[in-house]
Amino acid sequence: MRGRTSHRLRVCDSAVMLIVMAGLPGTGKSAVAERLGRALPATVVSVDPVEAAMLRAGVDRGQPTGLAAYLVAEAVADGVLALGQTAIIDAVNAVDAARRQWRPLAERHGVQAAFIEVVCSDERVHRRRLEGRSRGISGFEEPTWEAVQRRRAEYEPWGEPRLVLDATEDLAANVTRARAYLAEESPARSTR
């Protein structure tokens, strides 16, 4: 246990974080996550490819693959944080239960959790982006606009502090805002 405590101090001192992305499909959260991953650097753990891999492996679509994908992403991020590296979770995180799962993971590693929600304030732009994208995730069907609207109806209000980025803004500007927010939240730079 003694080695675990010194590891936690080292992780905090080096500003390792758990960054949790959230937002409806097609809002641009994956683009922000990927750019942040390159810039920081950080490992991006995306839920959609995890779920697609489960489906390709033969897990029945009637099973709760979405929940399972979140748990697998949590396990992968746990390993990344254990190595003393920043992890970025790329997931819709539409409900409070999904969002709450990340805080204990950060606490186990003694690192800060920072939440970034990506929205698209222009519905026409959002729909055009969603319907025009093809991420090439084998075995994963892109959601329809109707499916996104159902997700929107289920989207729960936030209780966590977070940065909200609007995808109608320039991607580079949003990444700059995210980096500034993360610098403020970083335990190595804060006075908390």
Score class of each variant (00 low, 15 high):
residue 64 P to S: 09
residue 65 T to I: 02
residue 65 T to F: 06
residue 66 G to D: 04
residue 67 L to A: 13
residue 68 A to W: 08
residue 69 A to L: 02
residue 70 Y to V: 07
residue 70 Y to M: 05
residue 71 L to C: 10
residue 71 L to V: 03
residue 72 V to G: 04
residue 73 A to L: 01
residue 73 A to W: 04
residue 74 E to Y: 10
residue 74 E to I: 03
residue 75 A to D: 14
residue 75 A to T: 08
residue 75 A to P: 11
residue 75 A to V: 00
residue 77 A to Y: 05
residue 77 A to S: 12
residue 78 D to L: 00
residue 78 D to A: 10
residue 78 D to Y: 03
residue 80 V to K: 07
residue 81 L to G: 07
residue 82 A to R: 14
residue 83 L to N: 14
residue 84 G to W: 04
residue 84 G to Y: 01
residue 84 G to I: 03
residue 85 Q to K: 12
residue 85 Q to A: 13
residue 86 T to I: 03
residue 86 T to G: 01
residue 87 A to P: 08
residue 88 I to F: 03
residue 88 I to W: 05
residue 88 I to G: 10
residue 89 I to S: 08
residue 90 D to C: 05
residue 92 V to W: 00
residue 93 N to K: 05
residue 95 V to Y: 04
residue 95 V to M: 08
residue 95 V to T: 11
residue 95 V to S: 03
residue 95 V to Q: 12
residue 95 V to I: 10
residue 96 D to F: 04
residue 98 A to V: 10
residue 98 A to G: 13
residue 98 A to Q: 15
residue 99 R to V: 01
residue 99 R to A: 03
residue 101 Q to F: 01
residue 101 Q to W: 05
residue 102 W to T: 05
residue 102 W to G: 05
residue 102 W to L: 08
residue 103 R to P: 08
residue 103 R to G: 12
residue 103 R to S: 11
residue 105 L to Q: 09
residue 105 L to G: 09
residue 105 L to N: 12
residue 106 A to P: 06
residue 107 E to P: 10
residue 109 H to S: 14
residue 110 G to M: 10
residue 112 Q to M: 12
residue 112 Q to N: 12
residue 113 A to Q: 11
residue 114 A to N: 04
residue 115 F to M: 12
residue 115 F to C: 06
residue 116 I to W: 02
residue 116 I to T: 02
residue 116 I to G: 07
residue 117 E to Y: 03
residue 117 E to D: 09
residue 117 E to C: 10
residue 118 V to D: 03
residue 118 V to I: 06
residue 119 V to K: 07
residue 120 C to R: 00
residue 121 S to V: 01
residue 121 S to C: 00
residue 122 D to E: 13
residue 124 R to E: 15
residue 125 V to W: 00
residue 126 H to Q: 11
residue 126 H to A: 05
residue 128 R to Y: 01
residue 128 R to D: 15
residue 128 R to P: 06
residue 128 R to M: 12
residue 130 L to M: 09
residue 131 E to T: 13
residue 132 G to M: 00
residue 133 R to Q: 11
residue 134 S to Q: 14
residue 134 S to R: 14
residue 135 R to I: 04
residue 135 R to C: 04
residue 137 I to F: 01
residue 139 G to K: 10
residue 139 G to V: 01
residue 139 G to A: 09
residue 140 F to Q: 13
residue 141 E to D: 15
residue 141 E to A: 13
residue 142 E to H: 09
residue 142 E to M: 03
residue 143 P to C: 02
residue 144 T to M: 05
residue 144 T to F: 02
residue 145 W to I: 03
residue 145 W to D: 04
residue 145 W to V: 00
residue 146 E to R: 11
residue 147 A to Y: 03
residue 147 A to T: 12
residue 147 A to R: 11
residue 147 A to M: 11
residue 148 V to I: 08
